[in-house]
């Protein structure tokens, strides 16, 4: 060992203070998801009630139920993945990435296929005036909360992590809009899913700035 290295190690040891380990990424992701979902649901409900009969539609229409379950599982996997990426050495499993992206792709594909084989009879019942802006607006606080939670961790791949967090934060209100806004697959793709992209870009910028500031 060189004298410089020895000196460095001694000074690092001298300034050692106890720290807390980050905890499991799954728990963090779960807590974030729960808080974010509660917040977005409350905002949506307070702004305008959910579409009349949405719970009955979930109970009686299997395709609609499947579509929404798929969306929810996709969002959960994306959240897990985003928090995995915020801890070095966690994302060593390409399987989870593949599963999360496949689930997301299947959800979007089901919505797209709904233009030809809709899960429900498309109607304008429950239409909200500015659903696209609502998706954007309600996605931002969960995004900030996620980035704040990641501040305690150590993001080595800020762009990828930010993209995943943004995707997840944007997908959450988009998914809830399927219950809160009118059911029409073309409308959902254009006004609920498309706003996810700017949220994703915001996530990339935000997490990149946080990582840069930390370094």
């Amino acid at each position: 060992m060189t004298r410089d290295r020895d000196h460095l190690i001694n000074s690092l040891v001298a300034e050692l203070t106890p720290v807390q380990s980050p905890g499991q990424s799954g728990r963090l992701a779960g807590a974030w998801l729960l808080l974010a979902m509660t917040f977005v649901s409350a905002c949506l409900w307070l702004a305008d009630p959910f579409r009349p009969g949405w719970h009955l539609q979930l109970a009686t229409e299997p395709q609609f139920l499947l579509e929404n379950l798929l969306g929810l599982i996709a969002i959960g996997s994306l959240a897990r993945l985003a928090f995995n990426w915020a801890i070095p050495g966690y994302p060593g499993r390409p399987g989870l990435t593949l599963v999360a992206l496949l689930l997301l792709g299947s959800w979007v594909a089901m919505l797209a296929a709904g233009r030809y084989w809709p899960a429900l009879q498309p109607s304008s019942a429950g239409a909200r005036a500015h659903c696209n802006l609502e998706v954007l607006l309600y996605a931002l606080p969960p995004l900030l909360l996620g980035a704040f939670a990641m501040r305690r961790l150590l993001v080595l791949e800020p762009l990828r992590t930010g993209a995943l967090l943004g995707l997840c934060a944007g997908a959450l209100p988009a998914w809830l809009m399927q219950l809160a806004c009118m059911y029409a697959p073309a409308h959902a793709l254009k006004y609920h899913l498309l706003p996810i992209l700017p949220v994703m870009a915001c996530g990339m910028v935000l997490v990149w700035l946080l990582a840069r500031r930390r370094n």
């Binding site: 380990s21 801890i87 050495g89 080595l156």
Partner: peptide, 18 residues
């Protein structure tokens, strides 16, 4: 970055990622 290591997880992936 020592705070980001979870002692329940394998050490090498964390170390070599850093």
């Amino acid at each position: 970055g020592r705070h980001s290591y979870d002692p329940k997880r394998p050490f090498r992936p964390w170390l070599f990622a850093l």
